[in-house]
Design a binder for these strands. Structure first.
Lengths: 224, 224
DNA sequence: AGAATAGTGTCTGTCAGACATTATCTG
DNA sequence: CAGATAATGTCTGACAGACACTATTCT
């Protein structure tokens, strides 16, 4: 196995919806290489850890958020020979979705940045970020994952704002309401309603057991 | 970076449709560990290779098939601490789809096995295989990838048999024909028709430029 | 002629998109 | 009472599922 020696890191694409926009958690690197540049949070896999364990640990260290209750999945691996000047480093990108508001205190050493306004990132992290955002956008179509962006309990409007922020489109509130409330197991109605705020109080829902959406909620067909 | 030293391998899930069934390419291991057991083809990433290059090289070595012309994509990484008795080895699973008939001579040192009849595999390769099959099944829904399983040129019936084999369902020929021929860029009609064979000759098609299916072709809703 | 396979047409139910109105709160 | 937000109902068009018939070849 000589000549086949890699260091392995886990990189996190932590997404949330704040102020009606999809935002990603970035950290400023303190050490070389790329000291001072913005990067995705992450770190090396420890000797006895599996990849998801490393990702969960880094998520907890960087945000104070603990699994379960937050979506975390592997995105893919990046191993171009020259992606790290220190030598061969394989990075395993992970996607984490956290609810808005569960993290209103700015996370330790990091800050939120709208994904469309993110400048250059260290290493190949811009590519990993792009892949993570596209994965999130795609999964909203055919899973109930959007609810992972909402604190519990939530209103239908909050959930709709998630779709609008992630996809960057406007959605008809009436059709959206019909879709999500008629999908069994997506939203579980509670007896409570919103109390503070202008207008008619909204019914509050909790996340249901459904994980897939049948039929899916389709974005606009991408122009061929 | 001490204590964070991995060997990195690429594992291939090479799928094809033969005899109306989805089949996977397996090899019998000659060396320890797991000597004599069945496994997915694969090997170590070389010093200057990126992951997809390794996968393409292994595919060519194992089957004699060269890119381009065959679908090859990364599945994900597997790095449980005890998955390889030699130490920490991170395996990057890849999915390859090859047309039936492009490989009728049994591939070098390997053989085809129907995915549902595959017994135990070395390492965690059974998990990688399951993930690869599920990825292929899912992608047939919303991409034109099924055409990658067909030699060119192909008939609509050949393409339908691919869906039936991969999903394990029966599909109405009339509705299927309407769907695929009315999706722009999925199948490009040619002037030719099948010559040998009983029955009315079928029109021959080539793969079109479309990569996504809008709207998708949905499998049965999986029971929640 | 008959068997085998390819290809087309129609009906129907489901569902997404478009759109107007009613309901219930705060200030 | 006015403004704001939530919730519901109807119409229409696109499309998938079910189903019967015609077309073209080989034996």
């Amino acid at each position: 196995m000589r000549g086949n020696v890699f260091a392995v890191t886990v990189e996190l694409v932590v997404l949330t919806v704040r102020d009606g926009r999809l935002q990603v958690l970035l950290v400023r690197r303190e050490m070389a290489p790329h000291a001072g540049e913005l990067a995705l949070p992450g770190g090396f896999v420890r000797p006895q850890e599996d990849l998801l364990e490393t990702a969960a640990r880094e998520l907890a260290e960087g945000t104070g958020l603990a699994l379960p209750g937050h979506h975390l999945e592997q995105l893919g691996s990046y191993a171009a020979p020259d992606r790290d000047p220190r030598g061969r480093v394989l990075g395993v990108g992970h996607l984490a979705l956290v609810p808005a508001g569960s993290l209103d205190t700015t996370p330790v050493g990091g800050h939120w940045s709208p994904v469309e306004e993110t400048g250059p990132l260290a290493f190949d992290h811009a590519v990993i970020l792009t892949d993570g955002v596209e994965r999130a956008r795609a999964k909203l179509e055919y899973t109930t994952l959007a609810a992972s962006f909402c604190p519990e309990p939530m209103t239908v409007t909050q959930l709709r704002r998630v779709y609008e922020a992630v996809w960057g489109v406007e959605i008809d509130p009436r059709n959206f309401n019909r879709k999500v409330t008629s999908t069994p197991g997506f939203l579980l109605p509670t007896e409570e309603r919103t109390s503070s705020g202008r207008g008619r109080p909204a019914q509050l829902f909790k996340r249901g057991p459904a994980t897939v959406l049948h039929p899916p909620m389709l974005r606009e067909p991408p122009a061929q």
